[in-house]
């Protein structure tokens, strides 16, 4: 009984989360380019939330906990290199203060691809 109730609550929670989260609405995703999808994940507070720590052009209330993400194409010409930094920043710097988005499954592989392409376009 309790389990069923918990399940229903969880389902309700999930529905609410989906409705509240613009990047998940099906029609939107279809009409969005890959770069736009990447940007949405980067900016979304419960997804990448990259702006909490990084300045990104066009973002409001960006933090300065990490370095500004500018001139990325020039600084990260190798896409794999950039993806690796986002997937798990500890490989490059064991003392890093950036969360391991891929290793800890904060983002899915597909989401990381989208974010990588967007960040590289900056």
């Amino acid at each position: 009984m309790i389990n069923k109730k918990a399940f229903l609550m969880a389902k309700l929670g999930l529905t609410v989360a989906i409705l509240a989260s613009p990047i998940f609405a099906a029609e939107d995703v279809e009409s969005m380019s890959r770069l736009e999808q990447g940007k949405a994940i980067t900016f979304n507070r419960s997804k990448g939330n990259c702006l909490a720590c990084h300045y990104v052009e066009g973002g409001e209330l960006t933090g300065n906990y990490g370095p500004p993400l500018i001139a990325m194409k020039m600084r990260y010409p190798d896409r794999d290199d950039l993806r690796a930094q986002i997937w798990d920043a500890t490989t490059k710097n064991p003392d890093t203060r950036m969360p391991p988005f891929g290793r800890n499954r904060i983002l899915t592989e597909e989401e990381i691809d989208l974010v990588t392409d967007y960040i590289q376009s900056l």
């Binding site: 702006l51 209330l61 933090g63 906990y65 203060r97 800890n104 499954r105």
Partner: peptide, 24 residues
Amino acid sequence: GQLEFACENCHMQSAGFQLRADRL
């Protein structure tokens, strides 16, 4: 935690920096 932070990461290494609008 999923973000893998110690208290130290925010309150020593990043003291005085900004997490969004929060100064640490």
